[in-house]
Structures are given as structure tokens and as C-alpha cells.
Design a protein around this nucleic acid. Structure first.
Length: 278
DNA sequence: TTCCAGGAGCGGA
DNA sequence: TCCGCTCATGGA
């Protein structure tokens, strides 16, 4: 994994100087992850069993109180610091809408999130707005995760969730999604759905494999593959993307960009949702 | 109060 | 195969 930007160790922090294509606000607020929140200038969230805090200024992004080995092993892959975004965006510039969208959303970094957590959060996402998804995910972690610091919880394991009933999940207030969450946990725990096998499948095959879970259709499968497995060709189509496709791509998304269609999709989602193009 | 949300399952045509 | 209805809840 080749790091695409320089970093330095300053005291107990890791610092990225003048990072290209990296905005914490855009990355955490573009609807791919629901576990980061902002307090003042500090963004904090949980990745695996690590509580991480970050601060961005005009000239740097600072990972607070983080060892170099954790940075390299966990956060370089998590924040896709190995992807050359400027080249990717340049590649998109032959398409007028994609050019505009990737310029506006150029601070978005795709996140390589933990697959089970990604699966669950997008099962919860169905027919919900983003603030509500955050609430449900927080309550799920609070009720069934491990407390690693005061008020900070890990995401619960599949094994733990697989033993619960929808009634047990009532504090999450997930409604009809509770039973889907439990089915997902059971499928992962008993390996009916096997993440390690999916690594060898095509994106299409992996999507069908995930759709064995109740409450997982094409959209949730596509989000899981994109945000949890780094399948950049996976292209989730939700209500926002339906608008984008009908407005700008009535003849279909350009074949040429399908290899990174998932990243393009994220720029387009952000563009449509935040620039008032309705 | 009403509308709608990063959908999916279901039954009927 | 396609379409419309329903599901449970809360943010705006």
C-alpha cells in the first residue's frame, strides 16, 4: 500500500501537511459513515477498537495522540491514503457533470470500513435520513458494543447480535429493520454469508451472495461492497442517484468510468444532495 | 402537522 | 416481471 502523501510525527500526533483532496467535513458528512461527530474543531469516531480524534486547519490534518504504527496499519487504509485522488479526478474531467461534481466534492475520501459494520449500518439506513441513521447506529453500539472509553463504544460483533431478538433491539428504535439486522448477524456468524469467500468473487457475484440476507437488496449490497470491501466499481443507486441518472445520464452512466463508478457515484451523490440541484 | 428519508418484501395484476 | 402498498420512526 503506497502512501500518496507525506506525513510527519509531531509529539504524540501524526500530521499531514497540505493534504490534497482531503476534507474531514466532506468525508464524514457525505453519507458513507455514521460514526464520526464534530465537537468544536475536533472530529472523533471509532474505527475498530480505536477511538480517533482529528483536527483540520488550512494547512494540515492532525491525527491526535496516535502511534505511527496505528497510523500506517489502520488509518492509511481506512482513509484510502494510498489512492491518488488528483489523478482520478483528472480522469473524470472529460465528463462535464462528473468534472463539476468531483471539483465540488474533491475533499471526499472513500473510507475502507469494517465489512460487518458497513453491512449493518446500510441495513439500518433503508428509508431513513442521515441524522436518524447516526442515532440508530449510536444506540446500537451503546447497547451492545464494548465501552472502550467513557461514552465511546465499539461496534457489536455478529456473534453477539446473532443471539438477540427484535425485542432485545428495541432500545435502538430500528423499527422493521431490527429483524433484518439479526438475520444479517446470524448469516455472518454461521458463515451462510462468508466475507472471506467474497474476496474472490466478482462484484456481481458478491452482491448476490449478500442478498441472501433478509432486508438486503441491490442498494444495500452495493453500499456494503463499496464502503466495506473497497469495490470501487460498485454503484449504489438510491433516490438521489436516480435523480442524477435521469437528469444527467438518461442513456446510462459512461462505460469508460465504470471501473471507479462507485467513487464517481459518491461525488455525484454529494453534488446532488448538497448543491440544491433538485 | 405533514412530508420524506442513501429500501426491501410482498401480493396481485 | 412489474407495480403499488406497507413497514416503524423521527428529522426537518
Amino acid at each position: 500500500m503506497k502512501l500518496q502523501m507525506d506525513y510527519s510525527v509531531e509529539g504524540r500526533d501524526i500530521v499531514l501537511k497540505n493534504p490534497s483532496c482531503f476534507s474531514l467535513l466532506q468525508t464524514f458528512d457525505c453519507g458513507q459513515a455514521f460514526r464520526f461527530s464534530q465537537h468544536g474543531d475536533v472530529w472523533s469516531g471509532v474505527v475498530g477498537d480505536k477511538n480517533i480524534s482529528l483536527v483540520q486547519t488550512d494547512s494540515e490534518i492532525r491525527f491526535l495522540d496516535l502511534s505511527e504504527s496505528d497510523f500506517l496499519n489502520t488509518f492509511v487504509p481506512y482513509f484510502t491514503l494510498d489512492i491518488d485522488y488528483p489523478s482520478l479526478i483528472k480522469d473524470f474531467s472529460d465528463d462535464e457533470i462528473l468534472k463539476k461534481a468531483s471539483e465540488i466534492g474533491c475533499g471526499i475520501r472513500m473510507l475502507r470500513q469494517e465489512p460487518f459494520e458497513t453491512l449493518c449500518t446500510f441495513i439500518l439506513s433503508q428509508n431513513c435520513n442521515i441524522p436518524r441513521i447516526r442515532g440508530m447506529v449510536y444506540r446500537l453500539c451503546e447497547a451492545f458494543g464494548d465501552e472502550i472509553e467513557k461514552g465511546v463504544y465499539t461496534f457489536p460483533t455478529a456473534q453477539k447480535l446473532s443471539k438477540l431478538t427484535p425485542d432485545d433491539l428495541s432500545p435502538v428504535r430500528a423499527g422493521f429493520r431490527a429483524k433484518y439486522l439479526i438475520d444479517a448477524a446470524k448469516c455472518i456468524a454461521d458463515k451462510t454469508v462468508d466475507f472471506s469467500l467474497m474476496e474472490k468473487m466478482s462484484t456481481e457475484e458478491a452482491s448476490l451472495h449478500l442478498q441472501q440476507i433478509k432486508g438486503v437488496g441491490e442498494k444495500v449490497a452495493a453500499c456494503t461492497l463499496l464502503f466495506g470491501f473497497g469495490r470501487w466499481d460498485s454503484f449504489p443507486i438510491d433516490v438521489w442517484m436516480k435523480r442524477v441518472l435521469s437528469k444527467y445520464y438518461p442513456d446510462g452512466f459512461p462505460e469508460k468510468h465504470k471501473k471507479y463508478a462507485g467513487i464517481a457515484q459518491q461525488y455525484l451523490f454529494f453534488y446532488e444532495r448538497y448543491s440544491g440541484n433538485r
